[in-house]
Design a protein around this nucleic acid. Structure first.
Lengths: 217, 217
DNA sequence: ATATGTGAATTGATTCACAGCG
DNA sequence: CGCTGTGAATCAATTCACATAT
């Protein structure tokens, strides 16, 4: 497998969503032109992105929605369940714990942690908040793969190291800091203040172009 | 001004944060090497990013933290206040309304909207939730610049068009859909499910590299 | 006929090496 | 002498054109 641009990975997520919506609407076939229009990219780009991973279409006829959806789910690792935990049960952590459809997307929330003794033991979104000292044991028992990290900025690096030590290999970081990712751990940023600041830049510069960057909120 | 890569804009946000932290710690001078280390990029990259906008350092001596911080705030449009509103007062909207330090970052929350009559009139984070029908009037009265869009995916495009019609020029979109940005409106994505899916991809592909994309959470 | 898949061309971003200035 | 600022070179990503398959 050649090296895959990270922008390609982001676009694959978009294509998958479009295919999911097409399928819900009962559409059976589609084409790179259609996907391109909905994803706001060129049809060349769609075909090139898919070509990194194989051949999924039929020349002259386009793609079968269900087939391509399944392939993208497989490529993106969504053909298996991921066990996730929320670390930091402030307002944002609480909102994420109650977020609907996380299971539908293939992510199973299995635990919630907070270092504040006042929060430990409370119930949020069907989970009981545990102390950080339970992290290693719970991570092992629940086979935690991914953490949604919603602690304050100044606590994020310490929490990251605790997560790495506990065997968690993926972190979605909501804190407004650049994390030093321990070896073997993949970190994605989901930093809405950075997004707000980019909006500020583009408004300020009077550049009302198209969309911007990536991650989560 | 040449064209600025959007990756450069994202990195400028990071540099600004590092400078802010240095200043809080009382550090007066820094160098591209230091910023590079903290931002996880190369020193070449730091200097090239800054060079798009001017000359801010002293050869042989590096940068004055306070000066460079001020320049970056100006470049990113943070030297003026932005008036923001939350559109969609579900769990996530509520969490954002209570988010501390939004003012410190230069964003002033002035209004909150929801289409659900049951939510209208309730108080969240010092704001009274207004119906969507008030959008145009309130946007004008409060000079709303930016919306934090936290409505469900299926409502996001309609809300975007209402915001554009009300004169809001920047949208930070938390919904998991690609928005069709009306002319003159800049949209940034703050889509945490996309971030989670990218984590899934990198874990699945067993590529425990470094960080990924951008936006908010 | 029609739309995919892909090597080649182009564009863009990053890296480099060093000139320039304090 | 040190570190910035920047043109040139390298590397990567996107765009294109068309051969290919149905």
């Amino acid at each position: 497998m050649p090296h895959i641009p990270s922008a390609t990975v982001s676009r694959l997520v978009t294509y998958l969503r479009i295919l999911t919506e097409l399928r819900e609407r009962g559409v059976e076939r589609t084409a790179s032109d259609d996907l391109a229009r909905d994803a706001h990219v060129s049809a060349f780009q769609v075909r090139k992105d898919l070509a990194y991973f194989g051949r999924f279409g039929t020349r002259g006829a386009g793609y079968v929605v269900e087939t391509l959806q399944d392939e993208l789910r497989r490529i993106l690792g969504l053909d298996r369940p991921w066990n996730a935990a929320i670390v930091g049960m402030g307002r944002l952590g609480g909102a994420l714990a109650d977020y609907p459809n996380m299971d539908a997307y293939g992510f199973s929330l299995r635990a919630a942690f907070d270092s504040d003794p006042a929060k430990v033991g409370s119930a949020v979104g069907g989970l009981t908040v545990q102390p950080m000292s339970d992290l290693a044991e719970t991570a092992k028992r629940e086979s935690l793969d991914i953490a949604l990290l919603t602690v304050p900025a100044e606590a994020a690096q310490t929490a990251t190291e605790a997560l790495a030590a506990a065997g968690v290999r993926g972190i979605l970081n909501f804190a407004p800091v650049v994390l030093d990712a321990p070896s073997g751990v993949h970190v994605e940023s989901a930093d809405f203040l950075a997004g707000l600041t980019r909006v500020s830049y583009y408004l300020h510069a009077n550049l009302a172009e198209h969309d911007g960057a990536s991650v989560a909120g």
